[in-house]
Nucleic acid binder design. Structure first.
Lengths: 210, 210
DNA sequence: GTCTATAGGTTGATAGAC
DNA sequence: GTCTATCAACCTATAGAC
């Protein structure tokens, strides 16, 4: 985003900071925050415990950093407009699938934060400050659908954002089911993304095309 | 549900067990599991800490009980069939709103369990055993929509379960946004339930009725 | 920037009397 | 069934040397 300065003075960073962050993220996803100890973070990162406290003031600071890095990909959504080329079902899928993949990464962190009121508020504050949230996906997808509607390819008298919301929600629930029910989710599968997109695409077609 | 036995022998229960469970549920919702201590549970329930361990073997046992009581209302969904009377939009709303209300209660508990891998597995196991999960809502709503389709009131060539899934997912995401983003969610509102149902209802209408 | 060592505080769980 | 008292384990965070 911001171009890095051309040359750097002084001793180059040893990478300890990044290793700690990565280790924390791994452990949170594996065991959950509740079982996260600074000791284990230090062990996995290959540094000492004190080093963790040197780079991140305290455990809360460390977790803040984890949230921010975990949510970072969401900024991209809505920044780049949707490329409106190709079949509509295809366009919808190319938005929905990355969204679902992002959620698979982010949900463990988002949900982990719900286990502690203080963390929860921290996270909510961060999301508010940076305008992050599901509305981002809804807006982006809604704009595309509104354009389709203007072009006469979508039923005239419906709310594009409501439809966008339905699709974003579908991605969310699919990811959430995987997160909450784990592998057991496969025994009671929800409709696939393809089937869902297909159905939605069909529903959107204006009367003459049916 | 099951009629209680007419008479009970021995000393009547003092209600301590229920008080402990209720106190735990309250505290989990307020502070999150991470900040939950058996000490605070005992204090709020008005009993001693040892009493907690008497009734529930250990902390994990206590939390299991909390999960089960928190998810209990979900059993009802899908057990009672949908009353298919009235306007369709109205029927959809009368299913969706209670679902969302249930989720507002259950999500804090569901998400809290994600903070600990052991709890997460425990919860997933319980849900699997009792056939609980989002598919329950999808099935129930899907059956209603399939009937509507058979009666010619829904577009013929779409998958009713995929549509049901969209609506259930919408409820889920709305509840999840409230849970994750808290009061901040109100600044970036998602489409309302009414608007969503209305839009979906309109999309479903077969061509002649448009 | 990174280490070792340790202080200081919290918590889950048990023992044993009532 | 409920209590008081207590322990052993664990974990965050800091101090101070290199």
């Amino acid at each position: 985003m911001a171009g890095d300065p051309p040359k750097r003075r002084g001793r180059p960073p040893a990478g300890g900071r990044e290793a700690i962050l990565a280790a924390t993220l791994e452990l949170v996803r594996e065991r959950g925050v509740a079982r996260l100890t600074t000791r284990d973070v230090a062990d996995r990162a290959g540094v000492s415990e004190a080093s963790v406290y040197y780079h991140y003031r305290d455990k809360a600071g460390l977790l803040s950093a984890v949230f921010e890095s975990g949510l970072e990909p969401l900024r991209a959504v809505g920044d780049r407009g949707l490329s409106a080329d190709g079949e509509r079902a295809e366009v919808l899928t190319t938005l929905a699938r990355p969204l679902e993949q992002f959620l698979d990464q982010a949900l463990p962190v988002l949900m982990a934060a719900q286990s502690d009121a203080q963390l929860r508020e921290q996270l909510a504050g961060y999301m508010a400050e940076n305008d992050l949230g599901p509305h981002r996906g809804v807006r982006a997808l809604g704009a595309y659908l509104a354009a389709e509607q203007k072009a006469g390819r979508v039923l005239a008298d419906i709310d594009p954002e409501a439809v966008a919301f339905l699709l974003v929600a579908a991605c969310f629930l699919r990811a959430a089911q995987r997160q909450i029910m784990g592998t057991v989710a496969e025994r009671e599968p929800l409709p696939s993304l393809e089937r869902t997109v297909q159905t939605l695409d069909r529903l959107l077609r204006p009367a003459p095309e049916r």
